[in-house]
Structures are given as structure tokens and as C-alpha cells.
Design a binder for these strands. Structure first.
Lengths: 255, 255
DNA sequence: GAAATAGTGTCTATGAGACAATATAGC
DNA sequence: GCTATATTGTCTCATAGACACTATTTC
């Protein structure tokens, strides 16, 4: 154990890491009906999944789900495995974003933590929230989570993850990870606002449908006979359904 | 050595990593005078620094500079230390971009490599290229480097690094890392083109100077008396000098 | 005046941004 | 008809993109 694979390597007497965990910031967007109105846009909120630690260190504190990488897998495979063990979901958007290696960050030893963001649709986690271990696993609003004392340096990790998805929400099409295949533009707008409360575009519909440079990221959903598909789930007047294309524009600050 | 810091940790019988190297993709842009013309724009080329390995494994192959992280430092501190040892430069732009952890990627054992991009001005490396170890250290055009067989998975790392700086060249102001404090718009344009050969903007000057949304990333350089500063280093007619402001716009695919 | 790069004029089409106005369907 | 959301009309101004033209200095 912990011997080097062979002796050609002069660093074999060096101290080596005690582990390389992957930690996963699992985000979801919950919808809740607004009281009163019958057909009204639901309130959407960005939430993060945390686990209450059962043992030393940081026993009793909330922490990000995660686990140790094995020598037979990549850190990404580890994250995907832990994600499935923890939430039962697979095939979700998982994105590596940083490594945390500050000496002393883990009292158990020299641990290099690899942090991922996972984006999960609310429906995927539906069963989870009512499971027996509900007390140890919580889905909580991000504003609440960043206000808590978390285990290890998980608060920094969470803040970095948040920053990360805010940037990527605006520069990539990850909004699709929180939406059904076909959605209305109000839904899209709400998803963006759930992640970035300050996002405000008065003419949102105008822009995403008519802008030449951005045209191409969205297309109208049509049924078998070619008629535009609409939905009146959230409105009296049916709204046009859209879907993301697989085109992703290249942004530039220079033009 | 390699014992866990304490016994509370149930994973203490697991295999642990054999090392966590940092590898650094050091980019620079070289300028060379074009033959013939007296005052002409130099040719700028993106180059990468590679080191010829002297020992097993991959002896004789070119590799990215790097080295092992110590338990008393972060992987970033390791990268910065290695960068200085290797090139003598400090205070340069250094950016972490990915971890490489595929089992078997390093025949010496279970190594998790943390990859960085460093952006260095040509002048910083000037002394280095004529040093004694010139045969072991090379600054070579990136097109050449990606065509070579490199040690470990360094070719993948290099390709990823290239993709990374191409995106960041267009979405952030890292172009400043390759330019003097004050520069002409032709120089800026050339730097962008050295990194992204396909970048073409006919009205480059127009855009960066007159666009409201982008206005703010650049400002005209002025001398003590408030007069605009110009340079005729590369042209007969003097060109206005600019500098980057510290404003960095937030791009969005939605408007 | 030729060379070499810097910068402007001009024209057209399109987009941004603001808001008012109208449309649709359920209640 | 009221409500709540969806969508279009309209107007103004700024920008994109193309390309010809003028400017400035050195040789």
C-alpha cells in the first residue's frame, strides 16, 4: 500500500496524499404553486443538496455529498458514482470545476478534493426527499445554505459552485438541464432568474426569438403535422413551446 | 509516511494516491520582424514551452514542465513554484483548468495531475532560450507541439489548454498578458489572431472603440498633460495607444 | 511619390430597448 | 367581463458589416 509502482522514481520517499475525494454540489430548481392564483407561474427556487455528517470530523454539520476516488477510476467517475449512490440519479449534467488542496483543510490528513457541480431536475429527486433518511439529507435554498456553517471548506466550494453556474447559465445552454424537453419562454426566463436573481430582460421573448446572433439556440416545437405546439399549463392564453437546438454560440467581448 | 493522520477515518485501509503533480502549459507569443519591410507589423506566433525528459518514464520525449505537490502547499502554489524553477518567472497569469486522473496515465503509479495554463510575455523568457540547457527546454509553435508524441497524456492536456485559452482570449481580457501596458489596436488584433487564427473582424478598430456594450474594456492612453499617446513602432502613421481598464463585461447568450 | 499602417465616411440592414396595445382562454 | 399571461406594434437610436476613402509619417 502506498508504495510506488517501481523504484525508478526518485520521489518514492516523498509524502503522498492520503486521499482524493470528489465533492459534488448538487443543484436543483424547485417549483411551487403560488397560493391564490389558479393558473399562475410557479415560484422557482435554486436549491442545493446537503448531507448531515454522522461522524468525525465535523459531526453534525451539513456537508456536500462526496466520497473517495478509487485507484481504478477517474475523479469524474468517482463523482458520478457518488452522485448515483447518494441520489439514485444517473445521466445528469456533471461538471468539474475546481480542486481544493489547502493544507489542513481536512483533519483526517492530506486530502485533495475535486469539486463538481451536478444539475438535476426536481422530478429526479422527488422520491428522495421523502425517504427515511430525510433528516440527514436536505434540499435547501442556496441562500440558506451559504449562511450555514458547513463542514470542511465546503462553504467556499459552494460559493465557487454558485458563481460557476451563474456564469454558465448565461454563457451556455445549461438552462436545459432544469427544463423539460419542450418549455415556454416564461419557464426559461424563470429558470434563469432562479439562478441569477438580478437577471432582468424586459424584452426577453423578443430577444431570444428575434435576435439574429442568438437565433439558433432555440427552435419552436412543432407537432407531427408541423403545427406549432403550445401549452397553457401556466397561463390562460397558450404559450408557444420551444426546445434548445444543439447549437451553442461562441461569445466574444471583441465583437 | 502515508499513514493516515488518525484512526477515526474508516478509509485508512484504502489505497491512496502516489502523488499529485502539477503540470503547466506555458504559452507565450513571439514576435519576429518580417523580412524586407522596415516598419511593418511583426509576425506573432503562439508558442509553448516543453521539456525533454531525461529519465524513465518516457525518456527522450517532450513533456510539459511540472512537479509534485508537497503536503505543505496547494496545487496552485506547487504550479507557481515549478513555473519559477523552470523559467525563472513569477507574477504571471496562472490559471488552473483541469485534473487528469485516468488510471494508468502514469507508469510510476496512481498520479492525479493538475493542469495549469501560464501566460508569459516573450520578454520574460528571453534569457531562458539561450541558456545552457537549451537542448532540453524548447519553445515551440503550438501547431508543431500538438503534432509531436508527448510524454504521458500531455498531448491531451495541451489540446485542452489550447481550447481553454482560445475561449478565454475571446471572453476575458487575458490578451493583456501578452501585451505591454499600452498597446496599439493592431497589436491587440495580432495577439488575438496568434491564438485564434480564424478570428477575423474587418472593422476591428471600429468595434472595440465605438461599441457601447464593449466600450469600457479599453481606454485611450494619455500622457501627463492629457494628450493622447501614440506609437509609430510598427507603422509610419502613429497609432493611438490603448490600455485595458479593469472592467470585464459579463457575456450572455440571451441578451 | 511609394509604402505601410491608421483611421473615417457612408450606406444599409438589423437589433436593442421601452411601452403600449392586443390576443387568448379560463373563470 | 375580469384575470393572468402571451405576443405583437411602433418608435427611436445604436450597432454591424461592408468597403471606399483619407491621413500620417518614413523612406
Amino acid at each position: 500500500m502506498n508504495e510506488h509502482a517501481n523504484g525508478h522514481y526518485s520521489a518514492s520517499s516523498y509524502r503522498t496524499p492520503d486521499g482524493a475525494p470528489s465533492d459534488i454540489v448538487i443543484f436543483t430548481i424547485t417549483s411551487s404553486e403560488r397560493a391564490g392564483a389558479k393558473k399562475a407561474l410557479p415560484t422557482r427556487r435554486l436549491e442545493v443538496l446537503l448531507i448531515k455528517r454522522q461522524k468525525w470530523p465535523f459531526e453534525g454539520l451539513w456537508a456536500l455529498p462526496g466520497g473517495f476516488t478509487k485507484e481504478t477510476e477517474t475523479v469524474e467517475e468517482c463523482a458520478r458514482r457518488e452522485l448515483e449512490e447518494e441520489t439514485g440519479v444517473s445521466d445528469v449534467h456533471l461538471e468539474y470545476f475546481n480542486v481544493y488542496s489547502k493544507p489542513g483543510r481536512d483533519p483526517r490528513g492530506w486530502m485533495l478534493s475535486h469539486a463538481f457541480v451536478a444539475l438535476v431536475r426536481e422530478s429526479f429527486l422527488a422520491g428522495r426527499r421523502t425517504s427515511d433518511e430525510a433528516a440527514d439529507v436536505a434540499l435547501m435554498p442556496v441562500e440558506d445554505a451559504v449562511g450555514l456553517e458547513l463542514a470542511f471548506d465546503h462553504r467556499s466550494i459552494l460559493e465557487d459552485a454558485l458563481e460557476r453556474i451563474r456564469v454558465r447559465m448565461l454563457t451556455t445552454t445549461i438552462a436545459k438541464e432544469f427544463l423539460p424537453e419542450e418549455f415556454t419562454l416564461s419557464e426559461l426566463y424563470q429558470v434563469i432568474r432562479a439562478v441569477i436573481p438580478s437577471f432582468e430582460e424586459r424584452n426577453f421573448i423578443r430577444k431570444v426569438t428575434s435576435t439574429q446572433s442568438r437565433k439558433g439556440i432555440l427552435e419552436e416545437a412543432r407537432d407531427a403535422s408541423g403545427e406549432p405546439k403550445t401549452s397553457n399549463r401556466y397561463s390562460q392564453r397558450p404559450a408557444q413551446l420551444y426546445r434548445f437546438t444543439d447549437y451553442s454560440p461562441m461569445l466574444s467581448i471583441y465583437g
